[in-house]
Computed example of a mutant assay.
Amino acid sequence: MREATLVGSIEIAADPTTVYGILTDLARWERFVAETRVPARAADVRLSPGMTFRAWNRNGPWRWRTTTTVLEAVPHDRLVFRVSCLGSPVSVWRYDIVPTPRGSRVTESTRDLRGTAMVLLCLITTGVLDRAEHSRRNIELTLAALKAEAEAEQPKFS
C-alpha cells in the first residue's frame, strides 16, 4: 500500500522572502526541483493561485509530460500545487516556510492521488518501481538544492 503523505524538512540560512521568491520563480525550478523540467518560456513567470503550466518530468531515459495547477501561493508562507498526467490527478505537492532565528525552516510534502490504473500507467511511463521511495529521495535532493540556491542568494551581513 502506498503512503498517503511523504514529508521532508530543512533549515535554510535565508529569510522566508528569499525562499518564497525562489519557490515561485518558475524559471528557477530546474536548478532545484529534482524531477521536473519547465518550458523555456518560463522566464519571468511567478507562480500564483489558479495558474497552470505544462512541464516535462524525467527519470533517467524516461520522459513524461505533466500539467501543474497552483492551488495556493501565500507570500513568504507556502506554495501548494497539484500535478496531473493525461488529465488524471497524480499528486499534490506543498512547501511550507516557517521563519526561524537563523532564517527559515522549509517543509516539503507530497500526497499521492493516483488510483490503481494510474499507478500501473505511471510504472510503465516513468520506470519508477517504488514511487514512495523515489519521491522521498527527490524531496531530499530538492530541499538540499533549494537550500544551496537560497543561501547563495541571501545577502551576507558582517
Rank of each mutant, 00 (worst) to 15 (best):
R94T: 05
T17W: 06
A117E: 14
T66P: 03
C122F: 10
E108Q: 15
M1L: 09
T18E: 13
N57T: 08
L47H: 12
V70L: 06
V38Q: 03
R94S: 04
V92T: 13
R102N: 11
V7S: 15
T67Y: 00
C122V: 02
E149I: 03
R78I: 02
L47M: 14
R41M: 04
A117Q: 12
W29E: 13
T100F: 03
V70D: 07
A14M: 11
E72D: 15
G8A: 14
T24S: 13
M1E: 04
S104D: 10
E35H: 14
M51E: 09
A145Y: 03
A132V: 09
R58K: 14
E35G: 05
T66G: 10
V119S: 03
T67V: 03
T24P: 05
L123P: 00
T125H: 01
L23S: 01
P16E: 02
M118G: 04
P75N: 10
R102D: 10
E11K: 14
K156N: 02
R78M: 08
E3D: 15
R105G: 01
V74S: 08
T126G: 14
E72T: 12
R114P: 03
R65P: 02
E140S: 14
R102T: 14
P39E: 06
E30H: 05
S104P: 04
I10C: 11
R54I: 03
E133P: 00
V38R: 00
P155M: 07
W62D: 12
H76P: 01
W29G: 00
L6T: 04
I139V: 14
L123A: 11
T107D: 10
L121C: 08
I10N: 07
